[in-house]
């Protein structure tokens, strides 16, 4: 009964062995040298063959900005749309064609500035799509203005005396929108990025992944105090579902609740691990330097998926009323003869 199955092409046979290069398009990548986007692109292209989804069933949809050039570099279907609206385009496509694997690539300006409303409602609807939000805390393509995630006081071309606004926290934003999968990753931390992307792809529902991404031209080093290899393990907190919150090179620090507030404690063989916080929603507010920066999956819950609910309503109506009969519909409730 699913119309999608009958009139649209769909590949029944599982794809033959695929390689990363099968997902590399013939376009020259035009990001600046040293841009964090390269690492993310490589990570995504590496993950794709592992998902077992035919390439022709994949669609990458983006808005406007440096990150939004992403679809041109993927050898899949793709739409480079208008500023901020990628979630809305993706919603239309996924509602129409639930069998497609849909990926949204956006940035902090595109996804949280001009497209804040689209992002909010995308997360509420919980379509089974994946959102990769590249956060570099700056407007890059327009050559360096503050973004919704820029730190207060940041000096940019549009804020020569410092940004006056407090930054938006994408994790808190996604949580309050009721997103069913929320995670954070770091561009330079390839292995963890890969793991998080895979978890996002496997989640049934909207996966929201914020990826800290360095812009070497306009906001170089914005994350260096946590991303530097030598500092990283002391300053990020790798989230493991159901595990106590431990961090540090030696895993010798932990986080526990004091009253309603989290605090850092030293962990040694005498520490009662059960006192430590098992990761939950409090994490979204934790930030360096007060705390390590959490990385990984913050929240994952099961919610109904919009595109499936739409289809269900259609099936229910067909069962109740029978398949639509155009003549009957056009005749309406009352017909008379002249």
């Amino acid at each position: 009964m699913n119309q999608t199955a009958t009139i649209f092409p769909s590949t029944k046979t599982p794809p033959a062995e695929m390689k990363k290069t099968d997902f590399v398009s013939d376009q020259t990548v035009r990001w600046c040298p040293g841009c964090g986007d390269y690492a993310i692109l490589a990570g995504v292209q590496k993950l794709m063959p592992e998902l077992g989804i035919p390439r022709e069933n994949m669609v990458f949809i983006s808005g406007i900005g440096c990150s939004s050039r992403f679809p041109y570099y993927m050898n899949t279907y793709g739409m480079h749309t208008i500023h901020g609206r990628a979630p809305a385009f993706a919603t239309g496509l996924k509602v129409a064609r639930p069998e497609l694997s849909v990926w949204i690539v956006t940035g902090d300006g595109d996804g949280l500035g001009i497209g804040g409303n689209q992002m909010l409602h995308m997360l509420r609807r919980n379509l089974d799509v994946n959102i990769l939000l590249f956060n570099n805390r700056i407007y890059g393509l327009t050559k360096g203005q503050v973004s919704p995630t820029s730190e207060q006081g940041l000096v940019t071309k549009s804020t020569p005396f410092g940004s006056l606004m407090t930054p938006l926290n994408p994790m808190t934003f996604a949580l309050s929108a009721g997103a069913s999968f929320i995670a954070r990753a770091l561009d330079v931390d390839a292995k963890a990025l890969q793991t998080t992307l895979r978890e996002a792809a496997e989640h049934k529902g909207t996966s929201f992944v914020e990826i800290y991404q360095n812009c070497p031209i306009f906001n170089d080093g914005t994350f260096s105090e946590i991303s530097e290899r030598s500092l990283r393990e002391d300053r990020i907190l790798r989230l493991q579902d159901g595990e106590p919150l431990l961090f540090g090179k030696e895993q010798n620090k932990g986080i526990r609740l004091k009253g309603l507030k989290p605090e850092i404690v030293d962990v040694n063989e005498n520490t009662d691990l059960s006192e430590l916080l098992v990761h939950d929603q409090i994490l979204s507010g934790m930030n360096f330097p007060d705390f390590p920066v959490p990385m990984g999956v913050f929240r994952q819950v099961k919610h109904p998926r919009f595109e499936e609910s739409v289809q269900e309503q259609i099936q229910n109506q067909i069962e109740k009323k029978g398949k639509g009969d155009l003549r009957k519909l056009i005749r309406g409730p009352q017909v008379w003869e002249a």
């Binding site: 009139i7 649209f8 739409m79 749309t81 809305a88 385009f89 239309g92 129409a96 409602h121």
Partner: peptide, 18 residues
């Protein structure tokens, strides 16, 4: 959620053959 999202969803659906 708004007028822009409505038209954008239509274009997305049209890309999918609707």
């Amino acid at each position: 959620e708004d007028e822009i999202a409505a038209v954008s969803a239509c274009i997305g659906a049209a890309y999918g053959g609707y």
